[in-house]
Design a protein around this nucleic acid. Structure first.
Lengths: 187, 187
DNA sequence: GTCTATAAATGGATAGAC
DNA sequence: GTCTATCCATTTATAGAC
């Protein structure tokens, strides 16, 4: 029953569904059944809470991606591990990636929070870069230019796909993720 | 000097830089030098203003894309017309596409507004679909699957690139747009 | 850790004068 | 069309009792 953890859990969900600006201590209070003052006891300020959410989210995603690479050495299966996480978010049709949410609210979010999410984005792209580099070297994938640039493209497209999916349906979002994979297939 | 137009101009900028939730009548008041009450005279409610911004933005983008196709029949030049508009947003100001901004705030924006922006997204993708279809038919572009799926991918990547660029710099965002173009080049 | 109570500021919105 | 003045709800945050 770690209250701090419960708060972070709900706050993360609210940021993914409503965004940082649009969620409030009152929302958390309603969901958790404790007062706003109690939440302030655990997280003195909203900026404080926002940063904690970003750190926790980064840790979770980082660990999840590391696990994918421990489970398989096949680049396609690794890519599917990433895509699978994206599709999972889309399926609920309500959440987007917290990093993407923060990026699109970049100018109004506490700096510590946007910094943390920017680091996460860099990490994910580095992770993807490695997958693509190995995939191409082994003749399993094909794309032009630097793996790092292609990785950034995959990341950007995934973020866009999630946001697009909320308005246009999970099927459309999945088509985008499929198209990314198709475009990486070796001739 | 059409006041209504001035308000829409500033409101659009604020939505692109701060988002719908995070901008206020006070912000508009500060920028325009007239009181909040005066702004309410032109736009009774924030939802009202948000919808008007969405409609005006849609009209402008639609007209701009139509002009691109009037100026050239070459698919690559047409694509550059779209990409150029994206890069302009990234480079000169700290703005993202208003449609993308609204998509990422989907659950907290007035429905009339998100509906209008969803229609715009569909329009842009249809526009891109035509460009890609002609490009492939004439052997100038290459990509797998249906043109409309590739068009959705290009759109999603562009939205993601703009949001990414704000946090990581215009250069990174441009690399993503370049990578999209590279991946479309016929072998 | 959680509560009640409350502060202080901000946000969207209205009434009515000029 | 724009202003002053004001309303009411919400938001972040604090003080102090239990």
């Amino acid at each position: 029953m770690d209250r701090k953890e419960q708060i972070l859990e709900i706050a993360t969900e609210l940021i993914q569904t409503r965004g940082y600006t649009a969620f409030s201590y009152q929302d958390l209070s309603d969901r958790l059944g404790i007062t706003k003052a109690s939440i302030h006891h655990h997280f003195p300020s909203k900026a404080n809470l926002g940063f904690a959410v970003a750190e926790r989210y980064s840790t979770a995603v980082t660990a999840s991606l590391a696990e994918v690479k421990q489970n398989t050495d096949d680049p396609w299966e690794q890519l599917d591990g990433y895509v699978g996480q994206i599709l999972q978010l889309i399926k609920t049709r309500d959440r987007i990636c917290a990093a993407g949410a923060v990026h699109s609210e970049y100018n109004v979010v506490p700096e510590s929070m946007s910094d943390a999410m920017a680091r996460l984005a860099k990490h994910i792209i580095a992770w993807l870069t490695d997958v693509l580099e190995v995939g191409r070297r082994e003749g399993m994938m094909d794309f032009p230019g630097k793996p790092e640039h292609q990785a950034a493209l995959v990341f950007a497209a995934a973020q866009g796909a999630m946001q697009f999916g909320r308005a246009h349906g999970a099927v459309k979002a999945r088509q985008i993720m499929d198209q990314i994979k198709e475009s990486l297939k070796a001739a």
